[in-house]
């Protein structure tokens, strides 16, 4: 096994690849279009769907809990239980129900975003000072108008902060999706683990996942700054 094809052998493996040295830039440029880029695109898609669906669900749940306080505890406990169950286990538990496919992965990923988004949206809505709410009431705003024009804008920083945490952790978590479907940046990592721990591929895919998380985080920070110019004086990161 000294000179056998250790790695998926696209043409000639360089000596760097054959010897499995720390990092082979040549391999990355050779396999960018066939391995890494598709995985990255799939990863972005998995994340976007999960965060978007999770946001809609969590937002609706938070509005419900905001309006009817009795719903808060059951919703909080449900999302916390979902959050605590390990992803790999959740995938496995979902497979008999939703089958092997994107649906299983997305259900699990969405489940994990719920707690953070729910908590942040609700906290954001509650952060409106009572005087402000009184003033809105005094100006003759209806409950719906108060929500849309006062509470939601004031909740935006907390909501975006929640989106940041949810997005970054979903990106990290989506690598696990490769246990169920051959998609996302987890896939090259698995391939590499199978092929004698090919370091370059693990490092490349892992770094891409981290860079993607950092990029998404920066993007959301910029979004937050542009939609809440009034909050720039006292921004918090939680």
């Amino acid at each position: 096994m000294t000179d056998g094809p250790v790695i998926p052998d696209f043409g000639q493996a360089t000596s760097c690849v054959r010897e499995n040295r720390l990092f082979c830039p040549g391999w990355v440029s050779d396999n960018w279009g066939t391995v890494l880029q598709p995985a990255l695109v799939q990863h972005v898609k998995l994340t976007l769907i999960a965060v978007a669906v999770g946001f809609v669900l969590a937002f609706a749940a938070a509005l419900l809990a905001h309006r009817h306080g009795a719903f808060e505890r059951p919703l909080a406990i449900l999302s916390a239980v979902l959050y605590t169950i390990p992803a790999i286990a959740l995938f496995q538990l979902l497979v008999p129900i939703t089958g092997i496919g994107v649906l299983t992965v997305e259900v699990a990923l969405v489940g994990y975003t719920l707690l953070i988004l729910f908590r942040n949206v609700l906290e954001g809505l509650r952060a409106t000072p009572p005087e402000v709410r009184e003033a809105a009431h005094g100006m003759g705003l209806t409950r719906r108008q108060t929500l849309l024009r006062v509470e939601l804008p004031l909740a935006l920083p907390a909501i975006v902060a929640g989106l940041r945490v949810a997005t970054v952790s979903t990106i990290a978590l989506a690598t696990i999706a490769a246990f169920v479907i051959p998609e996302g940046l987890g896939r090259p990592i698995f391939t590499a683990l199978r092929d004698n721990f090919f370091k370059t591929e693990i490092i490349a895919a892992g770094t891409l996942a981290i860079l993607l998380a950092v990029a998404a985080d920066l993007l959301l920070v910029l979004l937050q700054r542009s939609i809440t110019p009034w909050a720039s004086a006292r921004r918090t990161a939680t």
Binding site: I171, A172, T175, I176, L185, I189, I203, G206, A237
Partner: peptide, 22 residues
């Protein structure tokens, strides 16, 4: 504080994979 942000972005699969590789 940023350590937590970094930690959150670290895919556990990649960390274990790298541990294996090294």
């Amino acid at each position: 504080i940023n350590l937590a942000n970094v930690g959150r972005a670290l895919p556990s699969l990649a960390v274990i994979g790298l541990g294996l590789a090294f």
